[in-house]
């Protein structure tokens, strides 16, 4: 009856690979897009939507649903992929990525079921998620708010305004997940503007922090199952990830932050991601 841990992890890992395949499906339909940040986020998205979050795909506006805000909105292909796999949207929408009048563009748009906010201009999501967590508290709702933030995105100062406020208001119902893949559009963060020590920054802002390997499904599940990390502090999961994870030619390089996805690229990616 109940799922063993091994079964759980296998199920989530498979779902994550499906997200990656669907990312390439969407990107091929659109001609290209953000491979790197979509693939680095895939395992965490799988664990959120298929294990941790309480959501109702058939009732996307269910008031007590957990909230997820993709602050690094350029990974919207991965979010669309997980929403399709979860049943929020028709998987056929994946084939309309970037298409005229599609609800599925480069960045999340509330026109699409399951999307909580229009994001992608970087540095917006944490403030929005903070507002959602405050709204839950004021209305005595039990939902938890998750926000995924890109590492390069943390250059935007607005994040740190929100980080201050969330800890001031002791929002234990808020979790920030940092997709720490170490690479932005122009290169390595250490060569742009460095962000280390990442975890210490969040601790200094009053957050309870855990660092995990964002591709170790057991570690991802354990972190999500331990939330909140502290009864009176917001939680931060610093997830060490690999940009482009799962596709060898796209891994750990800024060249695949965003790139063209031709039929040939698609075929190479799918060969590595293996249909199951």
């Amino acid at each position: 009856m109940s799922e063993s841990r091994a079964e759980l992890l296998t199920r989530l890992e498979r779902a994550a690979q499906q997200i990656r395949r669907d990312v390439f499906r969407a990107l091929r339909a659109g001609g290209g897009g953000h491979v790197g940040g979509s693939c680095s986020a895939a395992d965490i998205l799988s664990a959120l939507y298929f294990h941790r979050m309480r959501v109702r795909p058939q009732e996307p506006e269910w008031p007590d649903r957990d909230r997820f805000v993709l602050s690094k909105g350029h990974a919207n292909a991965a979010l669309g992929a997980v929403l399709a796999q979860a049943g929020f949207i028709d998987p056929a929408i994946l084939d309309r990525f970037y298409h005229f009048d599609s609800p599925f563009g480069m960045h999340p748009d509330i026109k699409m079921a399951g999307i909580e906010m229009c994001t992608g201009a970087l540095g917006h999501g944490l403030a929005i998620a903070t507002g959602m967590a405050l709204g839950a508290r004021m209305q005595k709702q039990a939902f938890h708010t998750f926000v995924m933030i890109g590492d390069g995105e943390l250059h935007e100062g607005s994040n740190w305004e929100a980080a201050l406020a969330a800890s001031h208001y002791r929002l234990a119902n808020l979790t920030a997940i940092i997709d720490f893949n170490k690479i932005a559009q122009s290169g390595r963060l250490t060569e742009l503007v460095g962000l280390d020590p990442m975890a210490d920054k969040w601790r200094a802002f009053g957050w309870e922090v855990r660092e995990i390997d964002g591709h170790d499904m057991g570690a991802v599940v354990d972190a999500l199952d331990s939330l909140p990390f502290h009864g009176e502090r917001p939680s931060a999961i610093v997830a060490h990830t690999v940009k482009g994870k799962g596709v060898s030619f796209a891994e750990d390089t800024y060249l695949w932050h965003s790139n063209n996805v031709t039929d040939e690229v698609y075929a190479r990616a799918m060969a590595e991601l293996g249909a199951r």
């Binding site: 403030a127 507002g131 607005s158």
Partner: peptide, 23 residues
């Protein structure tokens, strides 16, 4: 009542998040 301090970007973002919850 929520005091955001001298942080206008955050005040607007938080307000938008609050509004999504029906406040």
């Amino acid at each position: 009542f929520i005091e955001m301090g001298i942080a206008e970007q955050n005040a607007i973002g938080v307000a938008a998040g609050l509004a999504t919850t029906g406040m």
